[in-house]
């Protein structure tokens, strides 16, 4: 049997996932990470994007969307603390599109420095959500 590592994904609103995984993919600030069991200890920040857990044994991949957070890796445990997170299947495409439109609009008639930064962050989040939805759709086909 292939090696697995215990994975916990929690957000401030509740626990999303707790179980074994053969491989975990997460969107770190420095680029996407793939983590296998017995990975060296690591902490990093996450940016908005999708987290995937491969439970192994031919079971389908688990998809989650996180809006940012912290990833901690220990050889025997992987913990993802998301700011907000949902199972990717629960993502709302219409809401994400609307959020993207609004963020773009806010960016277009930019006013203060703070607002631009906020709008950019919101835009990045909406785009990441849409990408996650897109990926999930491709998988299903």
């Amino acid at each position: 049997m292939a090696m697995t590592v215990h994975v916990d994904i929690v957000s401030a609103e509740g626990e999303l996932f707790s179980g074994q995984g053969e491989m975990i993919y997460a969107p770190a600030v420095m680029g996407e990470l793939g983590i296998a069991p017995r990975h060296a200890p690591l902490v990093t920040r996450l940016k908005p994007g999708d987290v995937r857990v491969d439970p192994g044994g031919g079971k389908p991949m688990e998809h989650f969307y996180v809006s940012g957070g912290i990833l901690e890796v220990q050889p025997f445990r992987v913990t993802i603390m998301a700011d907000t997170g949902v199972r990717a299947a629960d993502l709302d495409e219409a809401a994400a599109l609307e959020a993207k439109r609004q963020a773009e609009e806010a960016l277009a008639n930019k006013s203060g420095q703070m607002e631009i930064a906020k709008a950019q962050a919101e835009l990045a989040e909406a785009v990441a959500q849409l990408q996650t939805i897109e990926k999930l759709r491709k998988m299903k086909k």
């Binding site: 600030v29 420095m30 060296a40 200890p41 690591l42 902490v43 920040r45």
Partner: peptide
């Protein structure tokens, strides 16, 4: 020790 990305202080 951990590997810190991007760097220890920030993380």
């Amino acid at each position: 020790d951990y590997i810190y990305e991007p760097d220890a202080r920030e993380v």
